[in-house]
Nucleic acid binder design. Structure first.
Lengths: 225, 225
DNA sequence: TGAATATTTAACATTGCGTTAACATGGTCG
DNA sequence: CGACCATGTTAACGCAATGTTAAATATTCA
């Protein structure tokens, strides 16, 4: 269960946000000041922190800087709440280490959706072991954006296809056996049909051309530029 | 302590990046032009160079090409800064020898994280030892890539042939009897024709030349350089 | 929820590797 | 010297591995 810390000097807002998040099965904590927020954050190490920019005494930006300096929170996501058009606070906020911002007035459903997206992205990022961007021959493989450029041409791959391509391209020339591919891209225990890999290879070749992935019969596949 | 060179024509950006990196214990240098960057790079041999694409006079891409031509910087990582959606400059940048790119606007925390990842990867790469490669005489046998190089010439073998060659080459000089070969490359129980091994040997000799595998009549085969 | 998209399965086609068979060569005995 | 046995050589064949396609199923997103 994921923990979310909400920080705002107005109890009403805390309540609305808290209510909506709990309804979606998040565990929430609330703080009405920066100092209180830091205490709670240390104690609970939330996955996500929502910070109002405008608060008396210690404002959101200062709080954010403090929070970011705590090593146990280096993986937490920090989101600012700010009134629309407070451009400056927005920029300052991102500089202070925030990951995103939400403008008031808050639509609770949009808010929950955004939280979900951010936490999902966080999960993805933590599991990711791929190399961000790799250039091989005339291909550029961007694992962050899930994009491949072939020369000037931008080619979009779906997840599995992209993962497969990125795996093969991670060691150009190396022959990956079907077993290796299965354990790396599918989880160890899932059993998929023999032809599944072939079909994905086929579709990658369809999009990319036949010259990049080579079959080594009886062994597996390899990438070559 | 790792050195990072930051190159941008806007002092503000240099300052933000520098500040955030120093906070994370990197040693930074800054340059406001391509020429200045090259001077500094020569002097300091940074581990990583961050280059803005758009700069007056010498732009990031030109600078990158220059930097890459310096032998002392062959191990440096070069990262581009570009405005989002400047697809072309991205491609040109990676073609010019850059390793990755970061789009503006920059989120300092994401930026520092990315720098960490890139430098970590660099460390990994430098420590990497590619074991499964064996070099004998003028042959290089790469079991990961299923390839044999004879001098500069790349020779591809099919599975059985490769396995056979790799087996013989695993102990140069040792004579492998037919029985040994059979149990190692074929499974214990399969019964294959007497000529099968010979035929494979023949085909290997055809591809490699006759000087590597020697027949010991009445005994078996051995590899010799 | 349903439409759109992605992934997997299933059924069938194709291919190329490994094997075999048939024959050639060559070296070693009596 | 010539019979014999081990190995060399060649080409053709069969089958397992892979390719291909379409349809079924799962997933995503509005």
């Amino acid at each position: 269960m994921q923990k979310i810390l909400l920080v705002d000097d107005e109890p009403d807002i805390l309540e609305i946000l808290s209510y909506n998040l709990e309804k979606s099965d998040y565990l929430t904590f609330t703080a009405e000041s920066g100092l209180e927020a830091i205490e709670l954050a240390k104690k609970e190490t939330p996955d996500l922190i929502v910070l109002d920019v405008m608060m008396p005494n210690m404002d959101g930006i200062e709080t954010c800087i403090e929070l970011r300096s705590l090593p146990e929170l280096s993986n937490a996501i920090i989101v600012f709440l700010s009134a629309r058009n407070e451009d400056y606070s927005l920029i300052a906020g991102l500089d202070a280490g925030a990951d995103d911002y939400i403008t008031k007035p808050i639509n609770p459903r949009v808010f929950v959706k955004k939280v979900e997206t951010l936490l999902k992205r966080k999960g993805d990022r933590e599991n990711e072991v791929t190399i961000p961007t790799k250039s091989i021959g005339n291909l550029i493989i961007d694992s962050e954006k899930y994009l491949v450029f072939k020369g000037e041409q931008k080619i979009e791959f779906s997840k599995k296809k992209f993962e497969l391509l990125a795996l093969l391209a991670s060691k150009p020339g190396k022959v990956f056996t079907r077993d290796e591919i299965l354990t790396q891209i599918w989880s160890d225990d899932v059993i998929v049909n023999d032809r599944t890999i072939d079909v994905h290879i086929r579709k990658i070749r369809e999009q990319l051309g036949d010259d990049y992935i080579k079959t080594i019969k009886g062994v597996g596949y390899k990438f070559s530029a």
